[in-house]
Each structure stands twice: as structure tokens, then as C-alpha cells.
């Protein structure tokens, strides 16, 4: 699975439609490089990147915290 496949797996969650973060069918077309202002999508991408680069969980958490503390 590529990082884009993993991201799409998350974006397919109903929550994204319920909360209007994405429109119907948008998740499938989503590209890793697609620009987004959505914090949830941003931190999911950070978590995926951390996981794929075998980063420790603590470092990923710190990165996400830093991002959300802005």
C-alpha cells in the first residue's frame, strides 16, 4: 500500500462526509499532494508519513501536537 492508498483508506470514513470535510466521491480522487486546510486530514497525513518512515510514535505525536498548538 502506498501512502496515498493508506490516506484514501482513512478519508473513506463516513465521518468526513458527516462533518462535510469532503464531498461524496472526493476521497477516492484525493491525491497525497492535494492541498487542504483541514486539520484532521493534515494530522492523518503526518501520522502516515511518520509510520512509513518508521518514525517513533512519540515523535509523530510531538509533530502533531506542535501543528495543532498553532
Amino acid at each position: 500500500m502506498t501512502k496515498e492508498d493508506i490516506l484514501k483508506a482513512y478519508l473513506e470514513d463516513d465521518l468526513f462526509i458527516e462533518k462535510s470535510y469532503l464531498k461524496e466521491g472526493e476521497a477516492q480522487k484525493y491525491k497525497w499532494a492535494s492541498h487542504t486546510e483541514n486539520n484532521l486530514i493534515q494530522i492523518i497525513k503526518t501520522a502516515i508519513e511518520g509510520e512509513l518512515s518508521n518514525e517513533s510514535g512519540n515523535i509523530t505525536e510531538r509533530k502533531i501536537n506542535t501543528f495543532l498548538n498553532k
Binding site: 482513512y10 473513506e12 470514513d13 463516513d14 465521518l15 462533518k19 484532521l40 494530522i43 492523518i44 501520522a47
Partner: peptide, 9 residues
Amino acid sequence: EFYLVAHST
């Protein structure tokens, strides 16, 4: 939301 999505995904 991340917690919920992580589990459900």
C-alpha cells in the same frame, strides 16, 4: 475525530 477515524478505518 482522529481517534475515531483511526479505529474505524
